[in-house]
Amino acid sequence: MIEMLDYAFMQRALLAALLVGIAAPAVGIYLVQRRQAIMGDGIGHVAMTGVAVGFLMNGNPVWSAVLVAAAGAVAMELVRWYGKTRGDIALALLFYGGMAGGVMLINLAPGGSTAKLLPFLFGSLTTVSPSDITAIVLLSAFVLAVCLGLRRQLFAVCQDEEFARVTGLPVRLLNLLLAITAAVTVTVAMRVVGLLLISALMVIPVAAAQQVAKGFATTLALAVGIGVAVGLAGTTVSYHADVPPGATIVLLAIGVFAVVTALSLPLARRRAALAERRTGGDPDARARREDASVPS
């Protein structure tokens, strides 16, 4: 168990997994709160073009992926503001364009082939280089500074955007910052978890945590805990069983989600009974349940 720490590449992989385990749910919770859980997936597709650009220019693909993914995320945010009717079509174009652009550019790169993209799509333990780890540490620090430092502001914006605007918060700026932070997280995670699976690590720990938590802060803390646990455990299992780390981490996260769901059922029932007793069959509570299904 411990001997895997003798390898420098495993030390880097575990450090990267730890940072991803913290950063992904910390950003993901805001996307889930805004009911945009799928946004991380779209950013992952766009980042493929960024990775290919890195190969084409013989640079480090992490930095080119950050730039292209951030541009893509900002474009998605702009579509959300202005593209009211054809928004979903615009997003689809962006996703497919990102993927196709990645495949096209990687084949144009000297000695490049689609196979070179594979470790970025599904994650790989051996690909985290020393220069990558510097980038990953710096970028994770940025993600955590935004997600924890501005948590009240981001909470307000994602909970009730109109109220946040009337409050005088710089809502557009915060939305753009969140989009860029999500893009950075995707790039931080692509080495270990892979671009096509990173969205799972943003969403599943949050989905699991919110079944047992009452508030936002506890959901955030629990989700980060789950993220770190499955990140480290998945990387370790991946080393010993020689299986891809991204898939292992995501399957573990789904396992945690299933267990938490099973355990929370009695809890949810007890809470419902408690709420029923408190409102005491109050006609108003019934009315609320009824008007919850009527769009207004």
Binding site: I29, R34, R35, F155, D160, G215, F216
Partner: peptide
């Protein structure tokens, strides 16, 4: 209009 996708406490 005022609901999010994640639980929140009254205080929050």
């Amino acid at each position: 209009t005022a609901t999010g996708g994640v639980p929140a406490t009254v205080g929050e």
